[in-house]
Computed example of a mutant assay.
Amino acid sequence: MTNGSRELAADVYATLRDDIISGELEAGAPLVVTTVATRMGVSRTPVREALRLLTSDGLVESSERQLRVAGRSAQALFDIYEVRIPLEAAAARGAAERHTSFDRMQLIRLHEILREVPPDDVAALNAANRKFHEAIWAATHNSALIDFLKRLDLYLRRYPATALHHAGRYQDSRDEHEALLEAILARDVEVAGERANVHFTAARDVRLRFYDSADPVSRGNTQS
Rank of each mutant, 00 (worst) to 15 (best):
G94I: 08
E112N: 12
L77E: 01
T45N: 02
A138Q: 09
L87N: 14
S43L: 08
L54M: 02
I136T: 14
E64T: 15
N129G: 15
L110G: 01
K131H: 06
R84G: 03
E116F: 05
Q66E: 10
A139H: 06
T55N: 12
L54C: 10
E97G: 03
R98V: 06
M105Q: 09
K131E: 13
I80L: 12
H133N: 15
L31C: 04
H99S: 02
A138N: 09
R130L: 14
L54E: 02
T45I: 07
A70D: 13
S56M: 04
S73T: 00
A37W: 10
A128N: 04
L51I: 06
G41S: 05
T38C: 00
Q66Y: 06
Y81Q: 00
I108Q: 06
A50E: 01
S56N: 03
R130W: 11
A90S: 12
V42L: 04
M105F: 06
A92R: 01
A123D: 08
V42T: 06
V42G: 01
I136W: 08
D79Y: 00
G28S: 03
R98K: 08
E97L: 06
A91I: 06
V69P: 02
F132L: 13
F78R: 15
L114T: 13
E61T: 14
D120Q: 06
R104K: 11
R115G: 11
E88Q: 10
R104H: 13
W137H: 15
L114K: 04
A139W: 04
W137Y: 14
K131L: 15
E64L: 05
V42F: 11
A37T: 03
R72S: 13
D79H: 10
A96S: 04
L125C: 14
R93G: 04
W137D: 15
L67M: 11
V83F: 12
L110A: 02
E82L: 03
L77T: 03
R44P: 07
A37H: 09
D103E: 00
E97N: 07
L125V: 12
A74G: 11
F132V: 00
F132S: 01
S73D: 07
A135P: 01
P118D: 13
A95E: 08
E97P: 00
G94H: 13
A29E: 15
R93F: 02
I85M: 02
R48L: 13
D103H: 14
T34H: 05
E97A: 07
A90P: 09
V42Y: 04
Q75W: 11
G41T: 02
L31M: 07
A138H: 08
G94D: 10
L114E: 07
A92G: 14
R68M: 04
L125E: 05
T140C: 12
S101M: 08
A138W: 02
V42E: 03
D57A: 08
D57G: 13
T55A: 15
A29M: 09
T38V: 00
Y81I: 14
A123C: 00
E64Y: 09
F102G: 11
V42K: 10
A37V: 08
